[in-house]
Design a protein around this nucleic acid. Structure first.
Lengths: 146, 146
DNA sequence: CTTGCTTCTACAGTCGCTGTAGACTGTAGG
DNA sequence: CCTACAGTCTACAGCGACTGTAGAAGCAAG
């Protein structure tokens, strides 16, 4: 079995070296074999697994979800209801986030389009921010950083 | 001048007590006056400022942006080009994020709609995740947590 | 006086990495 | 062989914007 170093795995799966080590530390990737000198050694199955993880991350799945997906994958024979549930739930949170950002977008557009480049005292953007009544719907979660 | 405690300020501006203290620690809010026993005391101007911050956060502005907006607001007489720029730049990052999430949504929809609830071996979702060719556009930033 | 809420400080945890420091290993060229 | 230089190692701090915790002290009402 051909073994590769972490750098080659990194290129093969398009995941940074530091990230691979991080995945090992949080036990998302198993502990790697080591060479005599202590360097990590991987094989094709590591590339497979890491690629799976990367695809799932690209789709926005949380690390815990991915852990569960991997768990489910090894239990062959089980049906994929659980997988479906994870995916659907993720999809719904993506949609919720899109709606949330959509209303931000509308609000920001309104503010920006009203701005005439006048002095700060009459600036519509500042007015909007200072105006208590100009706020979005009363109770919603704070926006996550971009 | 009527002074209020942190709890009342919290209710007045709809910002949690811990968050107010956090804002003080990062110098987004100035240092509060203290009572003899050491409790923070605020007045109407604190409510004003905290409400401003809250509105800006609700609109997704980063703390650093807000710091700058406050700075600009005090320099009365300056025009609002800088304010406009901050808002426009924020709007464009909101739009970018929406586009990003939109393509995630499409991809997830495709995956979920293909799932027939069969066993894990034939599950389309797992297939998609394992399929190297099923990935989104080659180079894009990793998705932020929801 | 007691009960129970509010406030205080200081620090750890969230999420998914990224960056840094300082040391060691492996490889290619001369 | 020696010297570069790239790759790898560990351990830990930092990001952003908070949130949660522990343990102590203050405050208001009954």
């Amino acid at each position: 079995m051909k073994k590769i170093t972490i750098g080659r795995l990194s290129k093969a799966a398009n995941v940074k070296v530091t990230t691979i080590r991080y995945y090992e530390s949080i036990e998302l990737m198993g502990k790697a074999e080591r060479s005599e000198s202590g360097q990590r050694l991987y094989d094709d199955s590591s590339i497979q697994r890491l690629s799976f993880i990367r695809h799932a991350r690209d789709l926005g799945f949380a690390v815990d979800d991915i852990r569960e997906l991997i768990e489910l994958q090894t239990q062959s024979g089980s049906n994929c209801k659980a997988v479906d549930e994870i995916a659907r739930s993720h999809l719904s949170s993506v949609r919720q986030r899109i709606r949330q950002l959509g209303s931000l977008e509308t609000e920001l557009e309104r503010m920006v389009s009203n701005c005439k480049g006048n002095d700060i005292g009459t600036c519509q953007i500042m007015k909007s921010l200072n105006d208590h009544s100009a706020c979005l719907s009363e109770a919603h979660d704070r926006i996550k950083p971009m």
